[in-house]
């Protein structure tokens, strides 16, 4: 349609804009932009969240929550040792656990340590020496306390002497461990060519051992709970090693694993003996001094149970006094 003149504009423009039927923000051109942006966004979402994107990812494993924070594991030999002696050993562990069970302001043993006892003969070892029980008992402790953070194995001929020291602070704290661990240190003395890793950090350590004059000592070691711990214990307990007749059973099996398998060595730290494994006599290692967390009667077992019970007398009195005072 053509008009001779275009329609007149009003001389007085209206003070407000005429209302359109649509929403003001949704002009046609703007709608297009919005649609394009939406498409691009969807494409991005598709690319990022495509099924193949995260599907191959490893299943996340829940870290242990830390209740109890630590478990003390001891293997008792009820056939050889007298009940009185073993009761003293048990009491020592239980009291230590209870000391760390008392949270300030709390009456119960919430979040406290636990003591775990096993007896020689509890597990089927396929004819291997009874000392192998320590390894499988550790594994059992991990199963019983799946949320514990650390497991401390302490030989039965040993006593915790200083109830104030906590495993997680005294040994396993990353910053503490950085200073304690020996790097570039032959794992089997005196001159094994296999040495502990120089670049290992305290926070990556999963197991802490000590060395006495014979080599690695399995009388006292601390293990951090986790997949690696299970792998380590199950490997160590492997039937192939048990059947091999190592001269010192699980101790030599451990030395073998540590020297041949870098995935084990890469998580292992060696610390000074007096940190967790001081001996009662200095003939075979570092001698116990006051304030150390534990003392081990390392040589008496070779002589006989009576020797141990006799040697233990003075230490039993000492730890009872120390526990009473703390």
């Amino acid at each position: 349609m053509h008009f001779a003149y275009p329609p007149r504009k009003a001389s007085n423009p209206r003070p407000y804009l005429p209302r359109t039927s649509r929403l003001p923000g949704l002009r046609r051109s703007r709608l297009k932009v919005i649609a394009l942006a939406g498409l691009a966004f969807l494409a991005l979402v598709y690319l990022v969240a495509r099924p193949s994107g995260g599907r191959h990812g490893a299943a996340g494993r829940r870290p242990p929550s830390g209740s109890p924070p630590a478990v003390v594991v001891t293997v008792l030999d009820e056939k050889l040792y007298s009940t009185g002696y073993l009761d003293a050993v048990r009491e020592n562990r239980v009291q230590y656990a209870e000391k760390h069970g008392m949270l300030p302001g709390c009456a119960g043993a919430v979040g406290g340590y636990k003591a775990f006892f096993a007896n020689v003969g509890d597990y089927d070892l396929d004819g291997a020496p009874g000392s192998w029980t320590s390894v499988v008992a550790m594994r059992h402790a991990l199963t019983t306390f799946p949320d514990c953070r650390y497991v401390w194995f302490l030989d039965q001929n040993a006593f915790i002497m200083n109830p104030k020291l906590k495993i997680e602070d005294h040994v396993m704290k990353a910053s503490k461990l950085d200073g304690l661990m020996k790097k570039e240190f032959p794992v089997v003395p005196p001159d094994s060519i296999i040495k502990t890793f120089s670049h290992l950090k305290g926070k990556d350590v999963d197991v802490v051992f000590t060395q006495d004059k014979d080599g690695l000592s399995t009388g006292s070691f601390v293990l951090r709970n986790g997949e690696w711990a299970k792998f380590f214990l199950e490997t160590w307990f492997g039937p192939i090693y048990r059947a091999y007749n190592f001269q010192k059973a699980e101790t030599h099996a451990l030395e073998h694993i540590v020297q041949w398998h870098p995935t084990v060595l890469a998580k292992l730290a060696i610390v000074d003996q007096d940190v967790i494994n001081a001996y009662s006599k200095k003939t075979n290692g570092v001698e116990y001094k006051d304030g150390d967390i534990a003392v081990r009667l390392a040589e008496c077992a070779a002589v006989g149970p009576e020797a141990c019970e006799a040697e233990a007398q003075s230490f039993v009195q000492q730890w009872r006094k120390a526990f009473r005072n703390s």
């Binding site: 191959h56 490997t235 192939i240 090693y241 091999y244 073998h256 041949w260 398998h261 870098p262 995935t263």
Partner: peptide, 23 residues
């Protein structure tokens, strides 16, 4: 095999002189 800590351990443990000697 998938890249994982587990695989590292398996590959490490697969060959073992003690096992070899016996088997």
């Amino acid at each position: 095999v998938r890249r994982s800590d587990w695989t590292d351990r398996l590959l490490d443990l697969w060959w073992d002189p003690v096992a070899y000697e016996q088997k």
